[in-house]
Design a protein around this nucleic acid. Structure first.
Length: 502
RNA sequence: GAUCUAGUAGCUCAGGGGUAGAGCAUUUGACUUUUAAUCAAAGGGCCGUAGGUUCAAAUCCUACCUGGAUCACCA
C-alpha cells in the first residue's frame, strides 16, 4: 500500500500502528477547541493569568524540544503558533506516547496559560490528544530570534515550483502567505458588498458557451457529448451581461473565472478571475468615478490606507485619479501627435522611436505597440487612459464628439492594466458592422478577432438602454494591493506544467 | 516559442574527472522552564532522465524533463 516511503516516512507509519496497538484512535472525530493561539497570546495577563486557566487548543506540531521528563512543543493553528509545555508529572500515563509524535502531527491540548522563565506565553498541558498523525515530512524552516526579537529564517521552504505544486505545504510552513489570500478574499467580499449596497444584482452566466465573445482572445474548446456540439470556455462575461441589461436589470455584476488559451507568465494564468459590471443609464465618465471610488475603498479596507508601495514605487490611490486621453499621452511621452496617422507614417515613427514592430502590423497594432513601449511603463500612479481608437474597441460606443474614437477607458496602475470600461455600444446597426469587420479580420487569419453573435445582436435590436460596463482583473488588482509581483503568488493553485516521470 | 540559468539526503545548500559532503531534520542515549535547546553516537543518496566521451563521470558533451529570469506572443 505504501511502497515508496523513505525511512522517516516508514517510521511514522510504524508509530501510527504502535499508537493504534495501544488502543488510541489516531484519527478521532472532533475536538472541542476553546481558544486559538493568537487569542491566548494577545489576552494573557501576568496580573491575572487565571482568566486563561482552562483552555483547549489544537494545532499542528511545528517543533519539538524534548528534555527528558519535560517537553516543549510549538503548535500552529490558523491564527499562529503557540508553545505548549508537557511534563511527565502531569501526565504520567501518556507522557511516553509523546515519543510517537512527530512534527506535522495535529494534537489537541487542555491546560492553562502561563509565562515560562524565558518569557514566552505558553500553555501548560494537563491532557493531550492526538487528532491526526502525519505520514509525510514537512519542510519546516528554523526560526532564530535574536535579543531584539528579530526573526531570522533558516532553510526556508523557498523552492517556487514546490511551493506552487504543494500549496498546502507552503501554507503550513510559510504561514505569512495566508495573509495574501485573506486579503484576496476581502477584496472580493468588499467589492461584492459595495455593489450590493448600490442595489446591483450578482448573477451567473454560462461558462460553457456555444459562441464565445466579449474579448479578443483564444478560447479553450470542449465538447458536449449528448448535444454533440463544440462548446467554448468563456473568455469574458460581457455579451451575456448585456443581454441581462436588455432584459430589464439595471445593474448586474459577475465575479467569475475566465479562460484564455494563451501564454503563461507572471501576469497571465490560463484561468483568471474577472469582475464585470454593467449599469444602465450611465456612461464611462460615471464609471470612472465609480471605479476610483471602489479602488480607494478597497485599499482602505484591505490595507487601512490609500497609499501603497509596489515594485519600489510609492503609489497613491487618493481621489481623484488622473485622467488622460490616449493621444495626449502619446504626445506627452513621444512628443508626437499620432491622431489620424496612417500605417506608413506610424511605421516611420516606430523606427524613429526605436520601437520594434512586425512589418505586417496594421495601424491598431502599431499604436498598441508604441503605447506599450513608450507610454504604459510611465503610468505608475493610477491613470485612466481614455478615448481609444474605434478599431481597437469593437464593443464600445463612438465618442460623442471625437471622430474615430470611442468612449473607453483603461485604468493603469504601476504600468499595468487593472480595469477596462466603455460607454457600451447599443446601436445595433453599428454593432453589427463592427462585428462583421471582426469577422473579416478573422477570415484574414486573426485568431483572436471576435465572432458575430447573432443572438447578441438580436438583443441589441430589441434595445439596450444607454449603459456603461467595467471589467476588472481581480488577480492583478490583488497583486497591486498585496505587493506581489507574480500572478502565481496571488493564486492558491496556479496552473503548472504537469510533472512527467520519464 | 527564444536565450540565459538551475536541478546533489526530508529541507537549505557546498563540491566541478579518481571512496558522496555540511547544517538542520531523523534514529538511539542523557536531560522536569526549553526555544536555531544542548551533549554523545548512528542511519540516510539512481548527484533530474537517457545517451555519449573516458581506464574512470555528480563533475565534460548531446538530447530530453521540470523550474526560475529575460524577451517574444498576449487584454
Amino acid at each position: 500500500m505504501y511502497e515508496n516511503l523513505n525511512d522517516q516516512e516508514k517510521r511514522r507509519l510504524e508509530e501510527l500502528e504502535l499508537l493504534e496497538q495501544k488502543g488510541i484512535n489516531v484519527y478521532p472525530y472532533t475536538f472541542a477547541k476553546s481558544h486559538n493561539a493568537k487569542f491566548i497570546l494577545d489576552t494573557y495577563n501576568d496580573e491575572a493569568p487565571e482568566i486563561l486557566n482552562d483552555v483547549a487548543i489544537a494545532g499542528r506540531i511545528m517543533s519539538i524540544r524534548r528534555m527528558g521528563k519535560a517537553s516543549f512543543f510549538h503548535i500552529q493553528d490558523e491564527s499562529g503558533k503557540i508553545q505548549i509545555y508537557l511534563r511527565k508529572d502531569d501526565i504520567p500515563d501518556t507522557y511516553d506516547n509523546l515519543k510517537l509524535l512527530d512534527i506535522g502531527d495535529i494534537i489537541g491540548i487542555k491546560g492553562y496559560a502561563f509565562r515560562t522563565k524565558m518569557g514566552e506565553v505558553s500553555v501548560h498541558s494537563k491532557e493531550f490528544e492526538i487528532l491526526c498523525k502525519s505520514l509525510r515530512i514537512l519542510p519546516i524552516p528554523k526560526e532564530e530570534k535574536d535579543e531584539e526579537g528579530n526573526i531570522t529564517i533558516h532553510d526556508a521552504f523557498a523552492d517556487k515550483e514546490a511551493r506552487y505544486r504543494k500549496r498546502y505545504l507552503d501554507l503550513i510552513v510559510n504561514p505569512k502567505i495566508k495573509s495574501t489570500f485573506a486579503k484576496r478574499s476581502k477584496v472580493i467580499s468588499t467589492m461584492r458588498r459595495y455593489f450590493e449596497d448600490q442595489g446591483w444584482l450578482e448573477v451567473e452566466t454560462p461558462i460553457l458557451q456555444p459562441i464565445y465573445g466579449g474579448a479578443s482572445a483564444k478560447p479553450f474548446m470542449t465538447h458536449h457529448n449528448a448535444l454533440d456540439i463544440p462548446l467554448y470556455l468563456r473568455i469574458a462575461d460581457e455579451l451575456y451581461l448585456k443581454r441581462l441589461i436588455v432584459g430589464g436589470f439595471e445593474g448586474v455584476f459577475e465575479i467569475s473565472k475566465n479562460f484564455r488559451n494563451e501564454g503563461m507568465d507572471k501576469m497571465h494564468n490560463p484561468e483568471f478571475t474577472a469582475m464585470e459590471i454593467y449599469v444602465a443609464y450611465k456612461d464611462y465618465n460615471w464609471m470612472m468615478e465609480m471605479t476610483e471610488t471602489l479602488l480607494n475603498l478597497l485599499s482602505k479596507t484591505i490595507n487601512n490606507t490609500d497609499q501603497l508601495e509596489y515594485d519600489g514605487n510609492e503609489i497613491s490611490l487618493a481621489l481623484p485619479f488622473r485622467r488622460a486621453k490616449m493621444f495626449d499621452l502619446f504626445k506627452e511621452y513621444t512628443g508626437k501627435d499620432l491622431l489620424g496617422l496612417g500605417k506608413e507614417e506610424l511605421q516611420a515613427i516606430c523606427k524613429e522611436l526605436d520601437v520594434q514592430v512586425d512589418p505586417k502590423a496594421g495601424v491598431m497594432k502599431l499604436l498598441d505597440e508604441i503605447f506599450s513601449v513608450k507610454v504604459q511603463p510611465n503610468l505608475i500612479q493610477p491613470t485612466f487612459v481614455i478615448d481609444y481608437p474605434l478599431e481597437m474597441s469593437p464593443l464600445a460606443k463612438k465618442h460623442r464628439t471625437d471622430e474615430g474614437l470611442v468612449e473607453r477607458f483603461e485604468l493603469y496602475v504601476s504600468g499595468f492594466e487593472v480595469a477596462n470600461a466603455f460607454s457600451e455600444l447599443n446601436d445595433p446597426r453599428d454593432q453589427r458592422q463592427r462585428l462583421e469587420e471582426q469577422a473579416l479580420f478573422r477570415a484574414d487569419g486573426d485568431e483572436e478577432a471576435m465572432i458575430v453573435d447573432e443572438d447578441f445582436l438580436y438583443s441589441l435590436e430589441v434595445g439596450m438602454p444607454p449603459t456603461s460596463g467595467l471589467g476588472v482583473g481581480i488577480d492583478r488588482l490583488v497583486m497591486i494591493l498585496t505587493g506581489e509581483r507574480s500572478i502565481r503568488d496571488v493564486l492558491l493553485f496556479p496552473q503548472m506544467k504537469p510533472e512527467k516521470t520519464v
